[in-house]
Design a protein around this nucleic acid. Structure first.
Length: 535
DNA sequence: CGGCCGTACTG
DNA sequence: CAGTAC
DNA sequence: GCCG
């Protein structure tokens, strides 16, 4: 991210003493509970005396060198910043009193006495009302024995599943004890629920970009410690622009969103609408739902889902009869219900161990790690992402085929989706890939599993990419790009830009990164433990 | 207004 | 190549 | 959809 600092407005008029008492202070100011006029004066003073005011806090990443957060009190503070962020924040969090006293006395007073105890306030709030959630995640290896027969068969509504599942998980994790860090719960469900539906609708229609905009807004809204009652409270939140603000306004005033009603009731509002003048009816909701359902089949995306719908298919059973499906799609269909089931963490843990045992038998020293949401500490996983390498840098070659074969022999791997080998010929950076279905030993229920084998010198980037989450991946890649690199799961490269502007390509040589930390360091991104990568 | 991660497999 | 997936 |  290009470090664009915005000089505090008005500071230009006065001159600035870089050695003033606020030298080194880089502050974000929570503008609540204080008059704007007064605020401006403070900002001005701060800057005049060597400080810096950061106007916008880019949450998620460590906000551009901010080392002070100033607020009226804990309450105001938590209105704007979420507890999790504050918990991670290493600088001082002090009340405006500090600023006032410093200005009054003319010297920089110790900050200790003015520290805002937000942790305490948060706990109080939590105890008082809605249950907060713990960002606990220790996730030690649970040595639970395997004879657990029941598989939770919660019937997830087809529509809105992704969001709901995310929430469910969050709640699940929350219930384990530990120091309470983390954000509030359900307030504003009225809004996020509707956005969740929009996400699915737009995704089903193939408008991923738009879908993603709603997707990004949800966590931002969820983190708010209060119930939104007016669009005003939300107007300059990141990810919430004109349109979303209007949506929120409508939802909080009328309780619903006409746009969504349209989508669900009225055919004519569709984006996919072609020439035919379809009769107004409740068909759209049905169509969206159906397309959305089809799109949940592995290998079926928006385009294919639409084609299938227009062919007249309406149910998954209809699809089963269709001849045009690819191999993988057929498998996805056959095990549709299986794949949908989430895998309890302890089972993933056992399967990881199992894979390690089988692996080292074939190739001593082989490193096999389960990445994905499992590595990020989640309580349950949608699939398993297995990342593999070997310390010696060469004997990983040819491992995957043997591994897969063995895993099939012992009935762990069941169906193939994709299988490609490059370690031998050296193409694709020598990365071998297998996507398929597996079953927990002794069961038939299928799970999605991905196996990726990397040469040791590319392993760090592979592990990083396959641990995710996708938001972090995107952020890192963007950051890499801004710093003249190209990052993907096979390595970190020096970008070779053509004479023009755009990314022309990348150098052949990878920047040496032995560990994930090396990648973070090279990019200048603050290190995040795997469990901190749930952005 | 254009960009929105970057790359590989399938058919 | 478009579509899909990660 | 949002952002610069």
């Amino acid at each position: 991210m290009a470090p664009k600092r915005k000089p505090a407005r008005g500071a230009a008029a006065e001159e600035r003493d870089p050695d003033g008492m606020f030298r080194g202070v880089s502050a974000f100011i929570v503008p609540q509970g204080v008059q704007g006029r007064r605020l401006e004066v403070w900002k001005q003073r701060l800057v005049q005396m060597g400080g810096r005011v950061v106007e916008k806090l880019d949450k998620g990443s460590a906000a551009a060198g901010v080392n002070h957060v100033l607020a009226m009190d804990a309450k105001a503070l938590l209105r704007v910043l979420d507890a999790a962020w504050l918990h991670r924040f290493r600088g001082s969090v002090v009340s405006f009193e500090w600023l006032e006293e410093c200005l009054k006395s003319g010297e920089r007073l110790p900050e200790r006495k003015f520290t805002i105890n937000h942790e305490e306030e948060f706990k109080l709030k939590k105890a008082a009302g809605n249950g907060g959630s713990g960002a606990s995640q220790p996730a030690k290896r649970s040595k639970i024995s395997l004879r657990i027969l029941g598989i939770s068969r919660e019937q997830v509504t087809r529509i809105g599943r992704s969001i709901q599942m995310q929430m469910r998980i969050k709640v699940q994790e929350a219930s384990s004890g530990g120091p309470s860090i983390y954000a509030p719960a359900d307030l504003n469900r009225n809004i996020t629920k509707i956005f969740g539906r929009l996400i699915d609708i737009y995704r089903a229609l193939g408008d991923d970009r738009r879908s993603f905009s709603y997707y990004k807004a949800i966590p931002v809204i969820e983190k708010l410690p209060f119930k939104i009652e007016s669009a005003e409270q939300v107007k300059d939140l990141p990810t919430i622009g004109k349109s979303l603000k209007d949506h929120i306004n409508e939802i909080v005033t009328t309780g619903k969103l006409s746009k969504l009603e349209h989508f669900e009731n009225d055919e004519k509002s569709t984006l996919l609408q072609s020439v035919k003048p379809l009769p107004i009816s409740t068909q759209f909701s049905f169509k969206v739902r159906t397309i959305s359902l089809f799109g949940e089949v592995w290998g079926v995306g928006p385009a294919t889902a639409l084609k299938l719908y227009e062919k007249g298919h309406r149910t998954l059973d209809d699809l089963r009869k269709d001849e045009s499906l690819t191999n993988a799609q057929r498998i996805g269909l056959k095990y549709f219900d299986d794949i949908r089931q989430r895998i309890p963490r302890h089972e993933v843990s056992e399967m990881e161990k199992f894979l390690q045992d089988v692996g080292k038998d074939i190739l001593p020293g082989v490193i096999i790690v389960c990445g994905g949401s499992y590595r990020r500490g989640k309580a349950s996983c949608g699939d398993m992402d297995i990342v593999i390498t070997h310390p010696d840098g060469e004997s990983h070659v040819g491992f995957l085929p043997k591994f897969v074969q063995r895993l099939k022999e012992i009935n762990f791997l069941r169906e193939d989706l994709i299988f490609s080998i490059h370690s031998v010929d050296g193409t694709d950076s020598g990365v071998d890939t297998y996507f398929g279905l597996c079953a927990y030993p002794g069961r038939e229920l299928r799970h999605r599993i991905d196996l990726k084998v990397y040469p040791r010198n590319r392993y760090a980037c592979g592990l990083l990419a396959w641990t995710g989450n996708d938001v972090l991946n995107r952020r890192l890649r963007l950051l890499a790009d801004s710093k003249g690199y190209v990052l993907d799961d096979t390595g970190l490269y020096l970008a070779t830009r053509g004479s023009g502007g755009k990314h022309a390509g990348r150098s052949d040589a990878i920047v040496n990164c032995h560990t994930e930390k090396d990648v973070f360091d090279t990019l200048g991104f603050p290190w995040l433990e795997p469990h901190e990568r749930n952005l």
